[in-house]
Computed example of a mutant assay.
Amino acid sequence: MKLITKTLTLALAAIIINVNAFAAVKIDKTTEKAREAVEAASPDDWHTYAEAAEKCIKKEVNLKEAAEWIKKSVEIKETSYNLKVLGNYYVKNNLPEKAIEAYSKSIRLGKMDDDKYSDKETQDKIVKLVRQLG
């Protein structure tokens, strides 16, 4: 009987410790601020969605929600900026073909908006990905 009581007491203590550990999980500041920005954004504010996604992608946090935000941003309006962020998301998720496609479209849109548009950083990312693919 004493052994059963000790075992149950230890099991209960382990459960309480685990429950407290899960309850104490904190959301990182990047995710918290990104969520606040998205919640305050108007439904057609593609830029805020893209910025929130970009911050999470750079910090490598909350990537699932970042994917939703960047896809929503692109759905609202395709821009050079949000397509570049989408490309960065694809790179982080090891999807080089999709990244190349998003980056290329980003450059095309930039050129369509401004003949003098230049984005060497994105061009270098494309070259690097193409080389990786062989």
Rank of each mutant, 00 (worst) to 15 (best):
22 F>E: 14
52 A>G: 01
116 K>N: 15
112 M>N: 13
46 W>G: 03
68 E>C: 04
88 N>H: 10
64 K>M: 11
31 T>W: 13
7 T>F: 14
105 K>I: 08
29 K>Y: 07
71 K>L: 14
65 E>W: 15
81 Y>A: 08
3 L>G: 09
103 Y>A: 00
5 T>L: 13
72 K>Q: 15
6 K>T: 09
52 A>Y: 04
82 N>F: 03
53 A>H: 12
12 L>F: 15
32 E>R: 11
21 A>L: 14
78 E>P: 06
7 T>Y: 13
54 E>L: 10
23 A>Y: 13
129 L>A: 05
12 L>N: 06
104 S>N: 10
82 N>K: 03
95 L>F: 13
60 E>A: 10
104 S>E: 13
100 I>G: 01
98 K>D: 11
93 N>M: 09
12 L>C: 12
130 V>L: 13
9 T>D: 12
32 E>K: 10
8 L>A: 12
66 A>Q: 13
33 K>M: 13
94 N>Q: 06
23 A>L: 12
67 A>G: 15
94 N>P: 01
49 Y>H: 03
73 S>D: 15
126 I>Y: 06
133 L>F: 02
26 K>W: 08
76 I>V: 14
103 Y>W: 04
74 V>C: 08
118 S>F: 09
81 Y>D: 06
111 K>E: 09
23 A>V: 10
24 A>G: 06
6 K>M: 08
68 E>Y: 02
27 I>D: 01
107 I>L: 11
11 A>D: 06
21 A>Q: 10
62 N>H: 13
93 N>Q: 12
84 K>L: 00
35 R>Y: 10
129 L>K: 06
38 V>W: 12
97 E>H: 00
70 I>T: 04
25 V>P: 02
117 Y>V: 07
80 S>A: 13
23 A>P: 03
33 K>N: 11
105 K>Y: 08
123 Q>K: 09
79 T>D: 07
96 P>F: 06
